[in-house]
């Protein structure tokens, strides 16, 4: 094994800072920054999951917010029935049921929609993922029992053994560890034979097909993994905000996730994390100045697309190190 690259050290440094600083801020009387870091970690997981198919797989999904929303409602709906009755088989506050439910529902949704989406290419794929996400949005809006447009309050957070999600410090720790696991998982996947096929198909699909790989099956598998991982992030987000609404899966949320991946640097381990940090920081700073913060944010987004290719990671790259 060669020694670690500059970017490798960078990843370790960023992740170490993210582990140490928020609890320090919290313990010194600045709980706000811990909340920010928790949200950052959760969005980071969603961005990491999107990076698997968008960055490594070259599949531009514009519907990832649907998985976040489905994951959150998989926590909210059982908790709602536990409190208000009805649907007894579903009513629970146990995270050991809710979180696997979130992952399973999202994996299933990814399997069904992915099977349709992946039959198409390019711009069709972008629009169809968007349309399916909007379908879930309207579905949730139409169900009055779960609040419809107004959303749903999660009165009781998921109950887990050993971890108390009501404690902000433990919620952060849980989210942070989950982020590390997600990053490790995606890193492992992309370095495996499976990941090589996925990346190969991004570079030249015809070549991989000629080599005898069933590209469709590989992509669908990656899509399901990505959706399930994003659903997990959604379950955490529901526990973090304790208020969920269809707005979580509005397509501008999907756009923001894409922005994190692209701004940070697609197809890199650290990229989605840097992108999430940049997004949270920009959002916090701009929205503290003006309620019209989407204006400078939109201009920034356009500037990044027009002029800064390769993302933030591209700026940090050492000499002689290529993008993965």
């Amino acid at each position: 094994m060669t020694s670690m690259t500059r970017r490798g050290w960078m990843t370790v440094a960023v992740m170490a800072l993210l582990a140490i600083l928020p609890p320090v801020f919290y313990l010194t009387g600045n709980p706000f920054y811990l909340d920010l870091a928790t949200r950052l970690s959760i969005l980071g997981i969603a961005a990491v999951s999107l990076n698997l198919i968008l960055g490594y797989g070259g599949l531009v999904s514009f519907g990832h917010a649907a998985f976040v929303g489905l994951g959150a409602y998989a926590v909210g709906i059982p908790a709602h029935h536990w409190l208000y009755g009805g649907m007894d088989f579903l009513a629970t506050t146990s995270g050991l049921v809710q979180i696997p439910l979130a992952v399973a529902v999202c994996a299933l949704f990814a399997l069904v929609t992915g099977a349709v989406c992946l039959r198409t290419k390019g711009v069709y794929f972008i629009m169809i993922t968007m349309a399916f996400a909007q379908m879930i949005y309207y579905l949730i809006v139409s169900i009055e029992e779960y609040g419809g447009d107004d959303g749903l309050v999660i009165d009781t957070r998921s109950e887990l053994p050993f971890v108390n999600l009501d404690n902000p410090l433990q919620l952060f720790g849980f989210s942070y560890v989950a982020l590390l696991v997600a990053m490790g998982l995606v890193r492992m996947i992309t370095r495996s034979r499976f990941g090589m096929v996925l990346k190969g198909a991004k570079g030249n699909e015809e070549r991989m097909v000629t080599l005898g790989f069933n590209v469709y099956a590989y992509r669908l598998t990656a899509y399901v993994i990505s959706g399930a991982m994003c659903g997990f992030a959604g379950a955490l987000l529901g526990n973090f905000t304790t208020f969920i609404s269809p707005e979580m899966m509005d397509w501008s949320r999907s756009g923001e996730l894409m922005f994190m991946v692209i701004l940070g640097g697609a197809a890199t381990t650290l990229g989605p994390i840097l992108g999430s940090i940049a997004f949270i920081v920009v959002e916090e700073i701009l929205s503290s100045f003006t309620i019209y913060w989407h204006l400078p944010f939109g201009l920034m987004l356009m500037a990044v697309v027009l002029y800064a290719r390769g993302g933030l990671v591209g700026l940090l790259r050492g000499r002689g190190e290529d993008a993965e």
Binding site: G122, I126, S252, H294, L295, F297, G298, V304, L306
Partner: peptide, 30 residues
């Protein structure tokens, strides 16, 4: 917005015009 992006891939079109939506919507709000 569009002309500088013609030579790019669809991902850049989508992100660039997504930024434009935020700008236009906020301008309309203002």
């Amino acid at each position: 917005v569009a002309r500088p992006l013609y030579a790019r891939d669809h991902l850049d079109h989508v992100l660039g015009t997504f930024g434009l939506i935020l700008v236009l919507d906020t301008l309309a709000h203002l």
